[in-house]
Every structure is written in structure tokens, then in C-alpha cells.
Write a protein that binds this DNA or RNA. Structure first.
Lengths: 330, 330
DNA sequence: TACCCAGGTACAGGTAAAAAG
DNA sequence: TCTTTTTACCTGTACCTGGGT
């Protein structure tokens, strides 16, 4: 393991001071063109790379953005990390993804900013972590009011309303709703909108037809199995796609045809390289590219321009994707 | 954004030198119990966290392991990152996942070690990156001979032989092989074993019945569609599961029943939260928990014990999972 | 006086080793 | 010997000084 070459080595090789090397490589203008050329050449041929630790220590920033995920596995089948990474990279930042059990890194002045994705801690716990980290932060599924936090969330409302309207175009009138735990932002915000819509438009309170399937497919499958066998419902509003998948499985087991015998809608347009909704699921697409861009922009604004430190919430417009999982009458 | 509290602040509050604070918090024994107690209490109540940059700069290590992935999406669809993360965390290291375009971090003395997962660069390019980084490295799909590299790879040979033997138990004798590009370690090593087996056991050279579907499902689907329509083959040896999925799709489009009309085997036991092989695919399971443990152990040995710097390759035993995707005769 | 270019120095926040009480 | 402090150091960057034109 040969010693890493540092700025002192380059200075010696170029017969200049370390300050001049630093100035030359950082593009400062108090260096003659000739000297700069020479230094750059020497640095390159010796594969010199400044130490992040030294740089970070001196400048107090690292150009590193941390993305905290609950665990690496379960996190996404979506492209979100990839999209955010691309946006940040374009702006000169690097994204690093860390899991739950590496929270210590958040308080170690390693990152310039923080993105929290799908983190299933309670809002309270999450806010403790963020406050301790003192980092400018973007939350992707929250309505936190912390001052250094921007919430960039999918605009649940408009899609839920569109999905609700399908109820008026089908003869499947026995509707139920599959939700997540009580502290889930997306579950709450979607459910509330469904609730208000059905109450106002149809004088119907959906509360007693709401079931918590934890945003996961297996609990949804079991629940749907029971409910379908009892013939209690024929329209399943699932507040995310995973649960819709559970309903698909249950239907298959009971030889029911989705879009014919029962209707199902999801949310999130969760895609997987393997796999698939057959027939195509009607769901809401969160517009990942735009979402990613808004996240990056908001976060970098916070980092580079402390003026904007007030809390805010940004809504990412999304769009309903029509499949054939709902039985429409004409 | 309040100033982060540093070791000097704690020293002042505790009326001791910074060295004593450092010693107390790091568990060094040259500090009295009373002083240590007091310092720990003060540090905790002020949420003091040492700066990684300063620590890393001084000690020349960070307890950070970088995992380089081609893109985030395909890593997170398996349990491997999560498994490795758990192992490393137990040993006092943190895993951070970075993508392709953050390679600059590898040369910045940020990581103590490097894990490369499924990185589709040529062996040559990969070795350049690793050499430049000067980091102890574990490769998960390679037979690189670099001195600071350990290859921890799935033991393709034993599984391939077991899968080959299915040929003798079926009446689907028209076999073909779906591979990846020429520089893929797993594709090559699996194919070579198939090739040798069929040549030795059946005096049959599989070369002209080999097709590159790039380890992806879509090319495999298209290829299979053509081959099935031509009725050229009825047994598809896919060198990974993605391509097997493509064959499943093609079969469904042509109303062929897997395990009945045609036989398919895969490799890797790729699981997805959504989705699924119907009927169950016969494939090889890589034993992720063991694989993860071997990776962590090997890497940490390299980092902490420079004595072991010679190159080596470790094989992770795996196991064939029998599904019903092969039509067996009794 | 002004600018150009280079070097000296303090410093970021810790830790290891030597010195001292 | 036991504690604690002093000093040097890790590797860069920001700022200031100063000679030359």
C-alpha cells in the first residue's frame, strides 16, 4: 500500500509552495499561466487527489449529500435515488446513501445536506435526528415544520380526486380502502382526500371501510382474501401499489378477474424490473424526474444560500396512469 | 444554523485540555474515573460529535466502507447491500453506497475499503479505478489478480453442474444458453462450466446454441420469442434470472406452459417484492447471508491486518433451488 | 499607486506521543 | 505511577505580506 501523494509532494516536485499548488489547482487567478500548467501536469501525472478530510476540515463543506434510508433492501424499486444522484451530480454534489444504522454519520459534519426517503420513524423521532444533525434537509414524505427542512412531496390531492371519480364510472360500488400506519404522511394525506371526496360528493363516510395493510403486499393479500371470500367489497382503493399487488394475488387465488369481477387502484406507479401487474394497474405516477429535480434544487438552495431558511412545502404534480384494473361502464 | 459544538467547547466547559476530552471519550485509560464521567456527561448533554474530517485527517482512517454500484436501482432490489451493511456495522464500520459518477470519492481518502458490486465496466477499467484508489477492495464478480483485491464470488461451478444434470431427466433435449457480454465474469464462468459438462458428458458442443441476451429480461424475451416461434429449442438455460423472466414472458405470449411445453432454468435466485415466476423457477441461490459475511470478513482483515495483502479468490457455496420450471420424466 | 505572482502563516478539529506536575 | 497538559501533526485553504514591474 504505497503512500498517498499529497499536496506537499506536488509542491516539492514543482519547486513551489503548497499554497501555490492549491491556488493553481483551484483555479485562483494569482498564479501565472506557466506555473499553473506545470503544476497541473505534475499533479495529474502523480494522480494527486486532495484529501476530502483536509478539504472538509478547512472549508467546512464537503459537497456530499447524505440520503438516509431505512434499509437498503426494501427501499425502492423506483428510480428515485438514481434520478436524484444525477441531478446533484450536475450541480457538483455527490450523493451517498446510508442506512438507518449509520445515523452517526449525520452528526459528524460529513454531509452538507440530507435527504430522507421513506423513513418509517415517527415524525417526532425523525425531527430529533434532523435537529441533531443541524443539516439542511429535504423530506420526501412529511409535513414537518422544522425551520431548516423543506418538504418536497408528491401532490396526492389531485390524483386522489381523479381516482375517486372512477367510482362514478363503475358499477362496483362496494368500496374499501387499504392504508398504512397512523404516522404515515402519504397514507394520511391520501386517505383524508378520499374521505373528504366521498363525504362531500356521495354523503358517504369511508371510515369503517378502511383497513390498515401497512403499505405492504402480504398483509394486503391476506386481508383481501378474507374480504373477497365474504363478498364484502368489489372495489379496492389501495393507497400504494404494493398493497394493490397483494389484492391482485388474492384475486388470482380466488379465480377472480381484475377489472372484471373486481376493481383495484393503487398509488405510486411502483415499477419493478421483474414483475408485473396483469392487467395493468390504474395508479398515480409521481413524476420522478421532476421530483428529483425539485429535491436537488431546494436542497442546494438551502445549502448555498442561507437566506432561505424558512420552512416550506413543495408539491410535485403527478398524474394518473390509466390501466384496465377498474371495470368501467359506458 | 447554530455553530456545531467541537472538542474545544467541551474542553472549556469541563475545564480540562482538549487532549483529556479526547482521551476520556475514546476510552483511553490515562484519565481518572471522575474526570471521565464529568466529560462524558458534558459531551452528551451538548450533543458533541467529533468531526469525521478532523478524525480522519489525523488518524488516516474513517471506518467508512464505500460500495460502488453502477446504478442504485439494481442494488436495492436485492438484499445484498442490506446484508453487508449489517455485517460491517457489527464490526464497527459503516457502509455508504455511491454510484458510478461519484468515483472521485474513491481517491479522496474518504474510505478505508471498497466493495464493488455488479459493476459492468471491463476488467481493465475496473482495475484502473481500484489501483488509483489504493484501497483494499473486495470484488463480487471477478477474478482480478490485483494484489490488494480479494474476489469473493459465488461458486458457480457446483450449481451449474447440478442444473446441467436436469438435462438427463427431461425429454426436452433441444437446449440453448442465454449469456451476457464477453467481459462478464459470471456469464463466462457459468458458460464455461456448462460447456465443459455438455462436451464431456454428452459429446455436445453448446457454442452454436449460445445467445447473448445481456443478462436482461427484455432482450431475452425478444430472443425467446423468435426461437420459440421457430420451434428451435425447448430447454432454455438462462445464466441469470432476469433472462429467465424474459423467457417466461415470451412463453406466456405464445401460450406455452413453462415446465410442460418448455423447460427453463435461471441463476441467482433474484427475488423481487412484487412479482414473480409462475411456476416457480429452478435456479441457484447465492446464499447472501454467507456471502455478505465473507465479504465483510475479508475486507476488514485486509484493512486491519496489512499482512494479508496477497491476492486471493474465495468461493461462496450456493445451492440449487428446485422449482417446477423444468419438465422432468420419471 | 497599482497589479501580478509567489510564499508565509494561521487555522479547521481532532489524536498520538512526549513532557510535566 | 497516575493524571493532565503541551506540543506536534494530519492535509489542505484563506488571507496577508512583500518583492518586482
Amino acid at each position: 500500500m504505497s503512500k498517498t501523494v499529497n499536496i506537499t509532494d506536488i509542491a516539492r516536485l514543482a519547486n513551489v509552495s503548497v499554497a501555490t499548488v492549491s491556488n493553481a489547482l483551484k483555479g485562483k487567478k494569482n498564479v501565472s499561466a506557466a506555473t499553473r500548467e506545470r503544476i497541473i501536469k505534475i499533479a495529474a501525472s502523480n494522480h494527486y487527489q486532495p484529501s476530502m478530510a483536509a478539504q472538509g476540515l478547512r472549508t467546512q463543506h464537503t459537497k456530499l449529500i447524505g440520503m438516509l434510508v431505512h434499509d437498503f433492501q426494501n427501499v425502492f424499486s423506483s428510480t428515485i435515488a438514481e434520478d436524484i444522484n444525477r441531478e446533484l451530480h450536475q450541480r457538483g454534489y455527490s450523493l451517498v446513501v446510508i442506512a438507518n444504522n449509520s445515523k452517526r454519520l449525520l452528526n459528524a459534519s460529513l454531509f452538507d445536506g440530507l435527504i430522507v426517503f421513506n423513513y418509517p420513524a415517527s415524525k417526532q423521532q425523525l425531527e430529533t435526528i434532523i435537529t441533531a444533525s443541524k443539516l439542511p434537509t429535504v423530506l420526501m414524505a412529511s409535513d414537518s415544520q422544522l425551520p431548516n427542512v423543506v418538504n418536497v412531496v408528491t401532490d396526492n390531492r389531485s390524483s386522489v380526486i381523479q381516482l375517486s371519480q372512477l367510482y362514478e364510472q363503475t358499477d362496483h360500488k362496494k368500496v374499501c380502502f387499504f392504508t398504512n400506519d397512523a404516522d404515515s404522511y402519504n397514507s394520511n394525506s391520501r386517505w383524508q382526500t378520499y374521505h373528504d371526496y366521498f363525504l362531500n360528493k356521495h354523503q358517504y363516510d369511508i371510515t369503517s371501510d378502511t383497513y390498515n395493510a401497512h403499505f405492504r403486499s402480504e398483509p394486503a393479500r391476506e386481508l383481501a382474501l378474507k374480504l373477497l371470500q365474504a363478498q364484502k367489497y368489489n372495489f379496492f382503493y389501495c393507497l400504494n401499489d404494493m398493497m394493490a399487488y397483494g389484492v391482485y394475488q388474492a384475486a388470482e387465488e380466488l379465480n377472480l378477474t381484475i377489472g372484471q369481477d373486481i376493481s383495484v387502484v393503487g398509488f405510486d406507479n411502483t415499477q419493478s424490473h421483474l414483475a408485473i401487474f396483469q392487467p395493468k394497474l390504474t395508479t398515480a405516477d409521481p413524476n420522478m424526474p421532476l421530483w428529483s429535480k425539485m429535491i436537488s434544487d431546494q436542497l442546494i438552495d438551502r445549502i448555498e444560500n442561507q437566506a432561505l431558511m424558512s420552512n416550506r412545502t413543495e408539491y410535485v404534480p403527478n398524474q394518473v396512469i390509466s390501466g384496465s384494473s377498474v371495470h368501467l361502464i359506458d
